[in-house]
């Protein structure tokens, strides 16, 4: 009898434990932070157009930074394209150090990779030409596709600021 009563007590406590584990009594925090910027006290945080709109506004108020067919339904090379895009972004920001004032736009047409963006006019034009050729050459070597870099220049950082928050 003792054994049975003990067993039943153990079973009860086990059940309680399982129930406790399953049910959460705290409220859910659906916190999403990426692509969102806080408002500053002095309202002096500069935002570009891209930064001013949240990721949920993609395809409504702003468009994608990567254009390719891997993202469509049934597209191939999904993983390769994503990793390559990450690599291109890192390569470009590192090579064109502190020059890009916009996101790096990567557009893929068939075999061609087009990299677009807005840079500052801080650099000597000769150096810009060199960096363009250098990046195109190295990236096409890495990616096994022809790469074209199509840049636009602005005089100062404020030229791309959309609003201050």
């Amino acid at each position: 009898m003792n054994v049975i009563s003990n067993l039943s007590r153990v079973a009860q406590s086990l059940e309680q434990m399982v129930l406790n584990r399953c049910i959460h009594t705290t409220s859910i925090t659906n916190r999403v932070q990426s692509g969102r910027y806080r408002v500053t006290l002095k309202k002096n945080r500069p935002l570009t157009y891209e930064m001013a709109y949240q990721p949920c506004h993609i395809a409504h108020k702003k468009s994608w930074n990567s254009w390719n067919t891997s993202n469509i339904d049934g597209g191939n090379r999904v993983m390769e394209t994503t990793i390559e895009d990450m690599f291109i972004r890192r390569f470009m920001t590192g090579t064109w150090h502190a020059l890009f004032v916009s996101e790096i736009i990567i557009k893929r047409h068939h075999n061609m990779v087009r990299i677009a963006g807005i840079i500052l006019r801080n650099l000597d034009p000769r150096k810009i030409y060199f960096l363009t050729g250098y990046s195109e050459e190295l990236l096409s070597y890495y990616l096994h596709c022809p790469v074209k870099i199509e840049l636009q220049t602005v005089e100062k950082r404020e030229d791309v600021v959309y609003k201050y928050i």
Binding site: Y49, E50, S63, W67, S102, E103, I105, V154, V160
Partner: peptide, 14 residues
């Protein structure tokens, strides 16, 4: 709407 200078949106679309 934002003008064409320094406009990344215009560079994105085909």
């Amino acid at each position: 709407p934002p003008s064409k200078y320094g406009n990344a949106e215009l560079m994105k679309i085909p």
